[in-house]
């Protein structure tokens, strides 16, 4: 029995984003990390492996080989068994990434559960999990904060609006997109890190998967947020500050 985890390498949140002359993100100075939500996905897969002796955790990612391998090694250091790198250009649109993932998972004999993060913090699309489920013909649930499994089904809790919680049962194989709260991701252990370094990654070229990579969307331009005028600080006694603030919100900002 295999648990697959799909991960993505993204710029660290603290990274200052610069736009290059070619209208692409300037890669200089970008610190690459595993997408934070994917850590919950890996942790859950490892926990399920511990409960199901003989099962394995396979981690797969899509991205440029030169940098993306590091994210897989992070996952292996956490305790995943195998890593597959689908070598592909950066910034593919979700449909193409999802198609590639679904084909590779199928080639490797399919999965009991495919875990993903609920959102990649770089392109902010929250789409790959659902598309991967569609291409694989699996049911899916996103924004999952609780997970349990028996031989035929998984039962998950999904966070919706206003604190509403949906309890969903899906027949396996199924796709589960992890949210914060699902678990506490473990740190990589030192032996884990040593082992991950030596591990041979399986490499697949996206072109070898035999589907057309025609994009349906096109980026016209990247813009940085406009310079913001400095904050207007209120002054005087607290009562005076409070009254000027409310006046500004009403008359200047017009948000009341």
């Amino acid at each position: 029995m295999k648990f697959f985890v799909c991960i993505k390498q993204v710029p660290d949140t603290e990274t200052k984003i610069k736009v290059g002359a070619d209208q692409q993100i300037d890669p200089a100075g970008v610190k690459w990390v595993m997408n934070p939500y994917d850590e919950y996905a890996i942790e859950e897969a490892i926990k399920q492996r511990e409960k199901n002796p003989g099962s394995q955790v396979w981690v797969v990612t899509v991205g440029p080989k030169a940098r993306t391998a590091e994210a897989l090694r992070t996952a292996l250091a956490m305790g995943a068994d195998e890593g597959i790198l689908i070598d592909a250009p950066a910034n593919l649109e979700p449909q193409i990434t999802a198609k590639a993932l679904s084909l590779v998972i199928q080639q490797e004999g399919g999965a009991k559960v495919v875990f993903t993060g609920r959102l990649a913090i770089d392109d902010n699309a929250s789409s790959v999990s659902q598309m991967l489920a569609e291409f694989s013909n699996f049911p899916h649930t996103t924004v999952v904060s609780k997970f349990s499994m028996d031989s035929e089904n998984v039962t998950v809790e999904r966070e919706a609006e206003g604190g509403q919680c949906e309890v969903v049962q899906m027949a396996t194989p199924a796709v589960v997109a992890a949210n914060k709260g699902l678990n506490m991701p473990r740190y990589a252990s030192l032996p884990g890190i040593m082992k991950a370094k030596k591990k041979v990654l399986k490499e697949v070229s996206i072109d070898s998967l035999g589907f057309s990579l025609v994009a349906k969307t096109k980026t016209l331009a990247l813009e940085l947020p406009a310079e913001k005028p400095p904050v207007k600080l209120m002054s005087g006694e607290i009562s005076a500050q409070v009254s000027s603030l409310v006046q500004l919100l009403r008359d200047e900002a017009k948000v009341l």
Binding site: P11, I17, T217, E223, L224, P225
Partner: peptide, 21 residues
Amino acid sequence: VTAKRPIYSGKCFSKVTFENC
């Protein structure tokens, strides 16, 4: 149809359009 989307946690905006669909 063109749209604007925040990316990289709102640190950048992407102006995007559709093609081939």
